[in-house]
Nucleic acid binder design. Structure first.
Lengths: 228, 228
DNA sequence: TGACTATGACTGACTAGTCAGTCATAAATA
DNA sequence: TATTTATGACTGACTAGTCAGTCATAGTCA
């Protein structure tokens, strides 16, 4: 909801800044930097706790302790628990979307493009905190319409559009034969989503070679791989 | 909602038929029957509440109210909130597994078998409470290892085995060309799972024709459909 | 059959504990 | 020193689980 105006000071970037390399454990020179670092620490801690316990069961005391701040400090950055959760999702997802939008331009075989995307997804999402975050969104989405809306607009909708474009390109170039696939880009994504969920729930029962599964899935769509 | 069981009238029925045909939906004559009905009412109410709010945010008072019993009554049937959740999942899932095991024997094209399964899944799971339950398990699984274990053993593991058998049959008969598919039956299931999640989270943003999507997916695996 | 007793299912007020959010005070900074 | 930022003890609302008491029903007996 209320998007606290970002402290204004952050923009300063203070001239001879000691270059606080992201969330480095550096001494932290000025106020603006410290404030930003604290916020980042709170976001990180909140993400861990929410992923581990879900929204309702997470205690703000635990987040504060993990972030190394007092509980009151959280309320200097976030209006309340709900806004914190919502802003947390935005904060974590936005950079991911930005990176996905920076995919290489469509040169070379479509299969290579999709494979690059899959490898990227493997490295950046599956088996990372971001993967857990996706599961968390699935878990809490129905109770946080604003989160579900945001996720749909920023990730699902864009992803679908991008995938559809790739599929149509593949069809136009004769790499993909199933014409109707463009109507359901979900089919292309589905195994990747399943991999995310599998790792959270069943990895200990039956480890899943996600990379190999995605490869087989691409074989299914593009036909057997040419090399190796 | 409130299923006020018209206590007075029920008592009258006293036809000395002690042979209570299990948990029949009959007029409810004796104590055992009533007890079973109450338990069922609690399970139903709990399922609604857990699906709507998740485990932690669900109040036992609300479950009791919805079931039309006092809170104390819940504790005559379940040890505590956690056991109730665990037993609830078992109670709801077991009959589904039983029905899945009763699939028709492998005669006719494999595609027809898989299609029958998909249609069954559409009708029985997607867009039903059972679909919501699947999402609930994904949501709460990490915090309820016993639930995740149970679900893996009773549903995922069996489902994978069955699917693998079908895939191998399809490969043997030349209906399926992607040999490696048998190594990842998840790929066959993935779009169905996505449909379940989609309906819970994004149906209002973008309705999904799950039936058509599953059909396209089968086309992808078996090759274009022969008729219409 | 009718009356009387025993049983245990059911109730809901209550307890003990939890936790989101507040605010008077302290620390850090300019 | 004045101002901004951080702290954590505190409060009040909320809820899982309890248990002494109630009462419909089953059982027993005349």
């Amino acid at each position: 909801m209320t998007r606290k105006p970002a402290k204004a000071a952050i923009a300063q970037a203070t001239s001879r800044a000691p270059e606080a390399d992201e969330k480095a454990a550096a001494p932290a020179s000025n106020r603006a930097t410290r404030t930003a670092e604290r916020r980042a620490a709170i976001v990180d801690a909140a993400m861990e706790e929410f992923i581990a316990r879900g929204f309702a069961a997470t205690r703000l005391d635990d987040i504060a302790k993990r972030a190394g701040v007092a509980k009151g400090t959280i309320y200097l950055h976030f209006k309340d628990k709900e806004s914190m959760f919502e802003e947390l999702v935005r904060t974590v997802i936005v950079p991911v979307v930005a990176r996905l939008n920076a995919l290489p331009p469509p040169t070379g075989p479509v299969r290579d493009l999709v494979e690059a995307f899959a490898n990227n997804f493997l490295k950046e999402v599956i088996n990372t905190r971001r993967g857990d975050l996706v599961r968390l969104i699935v878990a809490e989405g129905p109770r946080f319409p604003s989160v579900a809306d945001f996720y749909y607009r920023e990730v699902v909708s864009r992803g679908m559009t991008g995938m559809r474009a790739l599929i149509e390109l593949g069809i136009a170039r004769g790499e993909i034969h199933e014409k109707n696939l463009a109507r359901f880009p979900q089919i292309l994504i589905a195994p990747a989503m399943i991999a995310v969920i599998w790792q959270s729930l069943f990895a200990q029962h039956a480890p899943l070679d996600a990379q190999e599964m995605l490869r087989v899935h691409l074989d299914l769509i593009f036909g057997e791989r040419r090399t190796t």
